[in-house]
């Protein structure tokens, strides 16, 4: 797909999502501004929806979106601290991780569907298609104490996904070309990692897993499931492989 065609798709997806649901007034405790770099790509639509619908603000976050035309430049900005969060192509991001950049993947974005009917039947073709999709990363410098902020960020992306899905059921002609999924999905990434031949013999067996922060996605989803039953969230939960919480937070709660 040409760059011009790609640029045409993003506003269509975002516009469809915005038209199909009303904006909500929000009140949020603002924190410092998070600089969220994203690739100019149809798979980045969820982040634009999250900003336009004020889901970041609803989660108490002040987010500034910064557009990049190339993943390499965006990843470099993430590494040097120019941006706090990045959403770039899976293949470039995984290569950067393999090179020791230390990024952690916290969520998924969108992947353009392949026109090749064989893709779904062939793991290698599927991995190749998936490698061109978008994933969300944070740099290694994120302090553990700010885990709550990453969960809020991921929750905003999940909300954007829900809005996008609701709009897609009503107006599918523009959005069918892109598959969105906010799940970082370790096993999908592991297939891409293998297909790109990134596992070095010197790397530990859990090298990739150490860079996929699925717990954040699961925590965000868990928190959202506490609300009214929502079929879109239930579907995400069914697909996620989350470690079950076996106990209440403290014995005193029993």
């Amino acid at each position: 797909m040409s760059l011009i065609a790609m640029r045409m798709i993003i506003p269509m997806i975002v516009a469809a999502a915005l038209v199909c649901s009303g904006a909500k007034p929000v009140s949020a405790t603002m924190q410092k501004t998070l600089r969220f770099g994203y690739l100019d790509h149809p798979g980045s639509a969820l982040f634009l929806i999250a900003a336009a619908k004020e889901y970041f603000r609803e989660e108490g976050l002040q987010v500034e979106l910064i557009r990049y035309s190339e993943s390499a430049r965006g990843l470099s900005a993430l590494e040097t601290g120019v941006i706090d969060v990045g959403a770039f192509t899976t293949s470039d991001s995984l290569r950067a991780i393999a090179d020791g950049k230390g990024f952690r993947i916290i969520a998924g974005g969108g992947t353009q569907l392949s026109a090749n009917p064989l893709t779904e039947l062939d793991d290698a073709l599927q991995a190749e298609t998936d490698s061109r999709g978008i994933i969300v990363l944070i740099p290694p410098s994120w302090p553990n104490a700010e885990k709550g902020t990453i969960i809020q960020l991921t929750a905003a992306i999940i909300k954007a996904y829900r809005t996008q899905q609701q709009s897609q059921t009503r107006d599918s002609k523009h959005t069918a070309a892109v598959h969105f999924d906010p799940n970082p999905d370790y096993w999908r990434l592991e297939r891409i990692w293998r297909s790109l031949g990134l596992q070095d013999s010197t790397m530990k067996r859990d090298f990739l897993a150490s860079h996929v922060y699925e717990e954040i996605y699961c925590d965000a989803l868990d928190r959202m499931l506490l609300g009214p039953i929502d079929s879109i969230l239930q579907q995400l939960f069914s697909k996620a492989v989350c470690t079950p919480n076996c106990c209440p937070a403290s014995a005193a709660k029993l």
């Binding site: 067996r205 859990d206 990739l208 897993a209 492989v241 470690t243 079950p244 076996c246």
Partner: peptide, 16 residues
């Protein structure tokens, strides 16, 4: 001591 599932999931992803 955190169930059976949790350590198995971690092992499957490479934890030693």
């Amino acid at each position: 001591t955190f169930g059976t599932t949790a350590p198995l999931l971690f092992i499957s992803k490479g934890s030693e």
